[in-house]
Design a protein around this nucleic acid. Sequence first.
RNA 1: UGGGGUGUCGCCAAGUGGCUAAGGCAGCGGACUUUGAAUCCGCCAUUCGUAGGUUCGAAUCCUACCACCCCAGCCA
Length: 561
Amino acid sequence: MTTPEKETSDFIRNIIKEDIREGRFGGRVHTRFPPEPNGYLHIGHAKAIVLNFDVAAEFGGLCNLRFDDTNPSKEDVEYVEAIQRDIRWLGYDWGDRLYFASDYFEQLYEFAVQLIKEGKAYVDDLSPEEIREYRGTLTEPGKESPYRNRSVEENLDLFERMRAGEFPEGSRVLRAKIDMASPNLNLRDPVMYRIMYVTHHRTGDKWCIYPTYDWAHGQCDSLEGITHSLCTLEFENHRPLYDWFLDQLGIHHPKQIEFARLQLNYTIMSKRKLIRLVEEGHVSGWDDPRMPTLSGMRRRGYTPEAIRNFCNRIGVAKSNSVVDYGMLEHAVREDLNARAPRAMAVLRPLRLVIENYPEDRVEEIELPVYPQDKSRTETRVVPFSRTLYIEQDDFAEVPPPKYRRLSPGREVRLMGAYYVTCTDVIKDEATGEIIEVRCTYDPETKGGQSPDGRKVKGTIHWLSADHAVPAEIRLYDKLFLKENPEEVDEEGADFTSNLNPNSLEILTNAFVEPELANAEVESRYQFLRHGYFCVDPDSRPGRPVFNLTVSLRDTWAKISS
RNA sequence: UGGGGUGUCGCCAAGUGGCUAAGGCAGCGGACUUUGAAUCCGCCAUUCGUAGGUUCGAAUCCUACCACCCCAGCCA
């Protein structure tokens, strides 16, 4: 288990410290994570989750989970369940503070009535197209709607009838009466309610008018007593509107602070685009191990601790930045290096026969499970015999410069077992492909050291052919070829044209240690000299399936290329 | 051409007028090594978007300019 970064400091925490020092909100800190249940959570959401929950915990406060379910046409219970599962998996607990914007629909309606009564909101009969035209542009002010100055009584009556279902969808809206000439377009009489004859996943058919996010969000935060509403940069322009609503209503006024959302290179984060990957079959589902979703990363083998550490390490600021994917990989390696048990796996097998080793002999080789940690003494047993599998890459008939693995005439160590020297190479006569390597072993080198003190340059892993367990191993590479998947070569193409055709490679002829035959789903291992792997739910007894989480750093790859 | 933001090392990111501009990732050396892993040591911004100015002193203050992001959904 890695220890979380301590002393994280960023502009948001600085503001909160200042607020506490000055006694704002009575020294209280209460945050919330407010997802819309219209998709699965991804690593970008993790940044917001970690921020909100950690900040609350650090300052002795609480963090709520609230679903902003104001648009039933896009939302579904499937998502509200998946989201809760993912947040729990990440390691966070909202106690009994699970809320829904829809819990507040009645209260929001009353707030709206209050604004109407004060002449601060009105029912508008303009069509959507007309509203757009009347809004004006970035450089020109808008025009006031002809319905803007209806009487309070008429507005009250109309609004009530909107709720009663007397008008067709899209025919009327409730708008705030603010300023059609404001340079901030959000203040040009924003829509508060729209008519939608859509069944809501929680309120059923109780409502046919639904609040917009802009109208609902700030009041929901207020009702929950939120002190610090942390949100992403694009809502900075909306803050004056949220402030206006809260001030008109005269209710608790949380402080909104905006930060930059997470962007990762070689990755897309937009929910709309992730949905496309799923629906168009570019990936197997939301939990495809190549997806940046939390469920995908979980299946891939990422740990909650690694993700949390990553989130704390990238910091929180206001500049639009793109984090290098390597940072994420570093975070998993760091965590898994410390805690993953080691095992040997041969991904692309090559037979190795030890000519001077007895035909029927089987030895039990004892190897440490956590060799990287001298304080741990657990061991495992791996059978050794005359015929082994080694990695194809660990033999070279003509060794390249600096190669220290097996080649004709050379001696290497079979990890934990014996020194072997290559005596011969057997090839397929037709294709010339190497199908077997012949060796002799030195019986004096049992355990991997020689009494005469001679050194070998290389140590390779191995598996006894008769004992190895067949396994399927799925290797993953980046889902996209470009750092910025949106950057497209040809006109008319979109991000899918940058999909990496080799992002998944399935090895069906791999082998693992006998002990792993029935490894538990989601358990993680380091396959020595390869990387970290995680047991996939597709595993069957006696035929486990492993997903590559992340490979080990590979300096040989740099040297050899 | 309106408004709101942001610009510090290849990538994140501290820094809020005064010791030699934190730290992490990546990279590069070297030590160690029964994982070409891990670990350990060392190197890696005379410079803070640009140009001026204020000051004994500026990444931090002022002025102008430049670049990038967000806003014209009855999405969130």
